[in-house]
Computed example of a mutant assay.
Amino acid sequence: MPEPLALDAAAVLWSHTPTDLAGRHLIVLLHGYGSDERDLFGLTAYLPAEFVVASVAAPLAPPWPMPGRSWYPIEGLDGRDPSHVTAAGEALIAWVDAHAAPAASVGLLGFSQGAAVSLQALRLQPERFAYAVNLSGYATPGALPRDAELAEVRPPVFWGRGTRDDVIPSPLVEHTVEWLPAHTDLSGRVYPGLTHSVSEAELDDVRAFLDKQLEGFASGAD
């Protein structure tokens, strides 16, 4: 089993002062391999203003000379050990428990590795997270103890990916195509010509997805 991981509480970018979190809806951004907390923070301008945004840094440093941070090691195209993805998901949950307890809801938005960790955290604690946004990521193969519970809860998940994304191996994409609809309330889109990246059209769809979550929060409070 991998060593327990911990996120650096000082390496977090917030859209609002964390003391303003009480009763508000939080969305946590998880960057991809070789990046850091600054990478996705620029998306804040595209997200509904009602959200507090926290962009966290992954706990590991990838092998030199790769810059930035990583959520779990990658050894070759198929070298993604599920136990390491789970360890990263557990570290994310620990950070949320320590720093986001006052939030009215917590949602996750991840890119690539960060998307895989977002889905893994959702599987570990289906009741803890309101939704997940999976950008150019995948669902990790292998069973987890609460997968059946997740399939009953069926939290909303948006999955966006490009037709020219050659970073995520095809078997992982094929697994995700089958796994997500069986366990979540899935929406999303495949973007023609998009590589392993995020497009304006995708951000428009993410915004619409998040607006829908806000509408659900509001109706649930009535």
Rank of each mutant, 00 (worst) to 15 (best):
A148K: 12
A54K: 06
L43W: 13
H183Q: 09
P73N: 09
G160K: 02
D222C: 10
V153Y: 09
L5Y: 03
T17W: 12
E50I: 00
I74W: 07
L29I: 08
G76E: 06
F217V: 13
R154D: 05
Q120A: 11
L43K: 01
L135M: 15
R69I: 04
P169N: 09
F217L: 15
Y46M: 08
K212I: 02
H99S: 07
A115Y: 01
W64C: 10
D20R: 14
G162Q: 08
H25R: 13
W95V: 12
A148W: 00
L29G: 06
D165S: 10
A103Y: 04
E200R: 10
P59F: 10
V133A: 07
L60F: 04
L186F: 07
P63E: 14
R123Y: 08
Q113P: 02
W71K: 04
K212G: 15
T176E: 03
S15P: 14
A221S: 15
D166R: 14
D211L: 15
S136E: 10
S136G: 14
A121D: 02
P2A: 13
E152S: 09
D78Y: 11
G23D: 09
E127K: 10
S55D: 06
P155F: 02
D39M: 04
A143T: 14
Q125T: 15
I27D: 03
E178G: 07
A57H: 02
P156D: 10
E3A: 15
G216E: 06
E37T: 09
Y138W: 15
V190N: 11
W14F: 13
R161A: 09
G188E: 11
L210K: 08
F158D: 00
L119K: 05
F209V: 03
G107C: 08
A98R: 09
G216F: 03
L47V: 04
P18S: 14
A10K: 15
E50K: 05
D185V: 00
A221M: 12
Y72P: 01
P102W: 09
A98Y: 06
S83M: 10
L40R: 01
G32V: 02
M66V: 15
E215V: 11
P4Y: 06
D20P: 00
P65C: 04
P62V: 05
L47P: 02
P63M: 12
A6S: 14
G23M: 11
Y72I: 01
A91P: 03
V96N: 05
Q125E: 15
L194W: 02
I27N: 05
R24D: 00
S187H: 07
V106C: 12
L135I: 12
V12A: 11
G142E: 00
V206K: 05
R189I: 03
S118P: 01
A121L: 03
G220R: 14
K212Y: 05
P65V: 04
S136R: 04
P82Q: 06
A9Y: 06
G110S: 13
A54T: 05
L180T: 00
F158E: 00
A103F: 03
A121R: 01
L194E: 12
D8E: 12
W64K: 13
L29C: 05
E75Q: 11
D147K: 00
G34Q: 04
L135P: 07
P192R: 09
G42W: 07
S70R: 08
S136F: 02
P63T: 14
G32F: 02
D97S: 12
W14Q: 09
A9W: 01
H84E: 15
